[in-house]
Simulated assay, not measured.
Amino acid sequence: MKQIGIIGGLGPESTVEYYQSIIRRFQEKKGSLKVLPELFINSINMYNIFRYISEWRLDDLIMYVGNAARKLEQLEVDGIIIAANTPHLVFDEVQKQVSVPMISIVDATVEEAEKQGVQHIGLLGTKFTMEQDFFKTPFEESRKHISVPEEDTQQYLHEKIVNELENGIVKPETKKDFKQIVDEMIEQKQIDSLILGCTELPMIFSEEDFDIPLLDTMDIHVNKVVDFMFENQ
Rank of each mutant, 00 (worst) to 15 (best):
G9Q: 07
E13T: 15
V16G: 06
Y18K: 11
Y18W: 09
Y18S: 01
Y19N: 05
I22Q: 00
F26W: 13
F26H: 04
E28T: 07
V35P: 03
I41T: 00
I44K: 11
M46W: 05
Y47E: 15
F50Q: 11
W56S: 13
L58T: 13
D59I: 06
D59Y: 04
M63F: 15
A68S: 05
A68Y: 00
A69N: 00
L75P: 10
E76N: 15
D78N: 06
G79V: 15
I81F: 10
I81S: 11
A84C: 12
P87W: 01
F91C: 11
D92E: 07
Q95N: 04
Q95L: 09
P101N: 07
S104R: 11
V110L: 00
E111Y: 12
Q116M: 15
Q116T: 12
G117W: 13
V118R: 02
V118I: 01
I121N: 10
I121C: 13
F128P: 08
F128Y: 15
T129M: 10
F135N: 12
F135P: 08
K136W: 02
K136Y: 05
T137N: 13
P138N: 07
F139V: 04
E140L: 03
R143S: 03
K144A: 08
H145N: 05
I146H: 06
V148C: 08
E151W: 10
E151A: 13
T153Y: 11
L157M: 11
K160D: 09
N163H: 14
N167S: 11
N167I: 01
N167V: 05
G168Q: 02
I169P: 06
I169Q: 02
K171G: 05
K171W: 09
T174N: 01
K175Y: 03
D177A: 15
F178T: 00
K179I: 10
V182D: 05
V182W: 09
E184A: 14
Q190E: 05
C198V: 14
E200D: 03
M203Q: 10
D209R: 09
D209E: 09
F210C: 06
I212D: 10
D216Y: 02
M218S: 08
V225R: 04
F228R: 14
